[in-house]
Design a protein around this nucleic acid. Structure first.
Lengths: 259, 259
DNA sequence: CGCCTGGTTGAGGTGCGTCAACATGGGTGG
DNA sequence: CCACCCATGTTGACGCACCTCAACCAGGCG
């Protein structure tokens, strides 16, 4: 892998607090690759022993059972995936597929585990990342079990308004059929959920959605920091010099409001 | 905390590969406590900075939103919980409540984080534990989104047959109303799900359930290692001396077939 | 232009929740 | 010891949310 790529990778939140020495060690055997849209990177159940880092593009994580399939997350840069499997050297939890042309860094699991055991800072960083992803997964389960379809859509829209800087206008970066699967419904039901939100001022024109955040809409959606990540307060700054960079671990690799 | 308790705690899978020195350090400020049934240990959103270890009894993890509430997991010994929050020093993900009289070890989060940064073995062990819990959470999401209510119940029964040594007779250790919430349905629907499984030879008498694992039943439930933990192959033994004890990290703190 | 994919709209069915009535059993107090 | 009570579990009737199937529409591309 080229040194310019390596420098870029070392800037990842995951490796922010890790020494250059460890990072170099970690990148032995790593490689950066570009994939076209629609490429299946790994299938659930595969024993792929790599940690993946999405640097550019969009990746969908999905699971399947008995001819049914569902989207577990839609990842945008910068996100990691397959981290848990890499730590345990176990089978992949989900199928990963590029939605558009993507640039992906692949780190050998063996190197990751070996390096974690040598450098406690890396072990801690991985634990932080895993905790964040786990938090997202638990939020996703709550989202799915506690809210109805229209409520899930409403909170998805609010989350993405926040992500795009509190804007009232957002643009879907992927197809609605994928969004419907992420939200746990069929495309038809998603379509009807949008019309149900029209009375709150949600207007849809193709992938362009305008959301006027009325009081009634907020009251209906009722986002909460216990489910919706965008409301979670940053981990309170301990007086310790724990997170030197102050830079949060991003990549909420799983979760309803994933990207 | 008494030294006998400490010895017991040091035998936990989480601390199996960790040096006695580190373990002692970790247990400074730790304490062991008994709680009666029905005690709320922590509420979701609370900034409780402790790692909990359930040594005896049963604990329910639940989440709530807008007057609705759902059971996220039912923990049996030995399980950890609130680990992600302790690592991140963040708010708790779920409310924890004892279902029966329980014995619980509480470790200060500050000590955990400090010790993780000193001993890479502990950091790695925590990462393994988090990976296992994350795996459970992803399985739970798949279970919820891909299967119908009766299918979830069927696979729950199969999982617990395995847990109780492949028996054809299992005993529910907690109320059916909690089980129904864990499976994402109402008590009424659970009741009807049981009668729906009668045609496959499932008989229910109070908390006693007999499951004759007919081919038709297996074909209906169709358990898979990608969702149901009891089928997951143990992580293949790497030639490295990675998991010295060969002892698996247990405590699948979250997940559909949790205990 | 015609095809194909993705999205929308409509009609009808089903799974599951809601509400209500009833049964059962453990616990308490007379 | 029995009467009573309350919580849990079951059963039935009904309604709503969501899925299924089908027709239709719009845009992209050969």
């Amino acid at each position: 892998m080229r040194s310019s790529d390596q420098a870029r990778a070392m800037a990842l939140p995951l490796f922010a607090g890790v020494s250059p020495r460890t990072t170099r060690e970690l990148f032995v055997g790593a490689f950066l690759q570009r994939f076209p849209a629609g490429t299946t990177l790994l299938m659930e159940g595969d024993p792929v022993d790599f940690l993946y880092v999405l640097l550019d593009g969009i990746v969908e994580l999905q699971g399947a059972w008995k001819h049914r399939e569902t989207t577990l997350a839609v990842l945008e840069p910068i996100s990691t995936f397959n981290l848990a499997a890499a730590v345990l050297d176990a089978q992949a939890l989900a199928t990963a597929r590029t939605i558009e042309r993507s640039e992906i860094l692949m780190l050998p699991g063996e190197a990751l585990r070996r390096t974690m055991k040598a450098d406690p800072d890396l072990g801690f960083a991985v634990a932080e990342e895993l905790s964040a992803v786990l938090s997202g997964a638990v939020r996703a389960t709550k989202n799915q079990k506690l809210r109805g379809g229209v409520e899930r859509l409403a909170n998805y829209l609010l989350a993405h308004c926040m992500r795009q800087g509190g804007a009232e206008r957002i643009t879907l970066r992927y197809e609605k059929r994928i969004l419907s699967s992420l939200l746990g419904m069929t495309p038809e039901t998603l379509s009807r959920a949008f019309v149900a939100l029209a009375r709150y001022g949600v207007e849809v024109k193709g992938p362009e959605i305008s959301v006027t955040r009325t009081a009634a809409f907020e009251r209906f959606a009722r986002p909460t920091s216990l489910i919706d990540n965008h409301l979670a307060e940053p981990t309170r700054p301990t007086s310790k010099v724990e997170r030197e960079q102050g830079q949060p671990v991003t990549s909420w690799a799983l979760g309803a409001e994933s990207p």
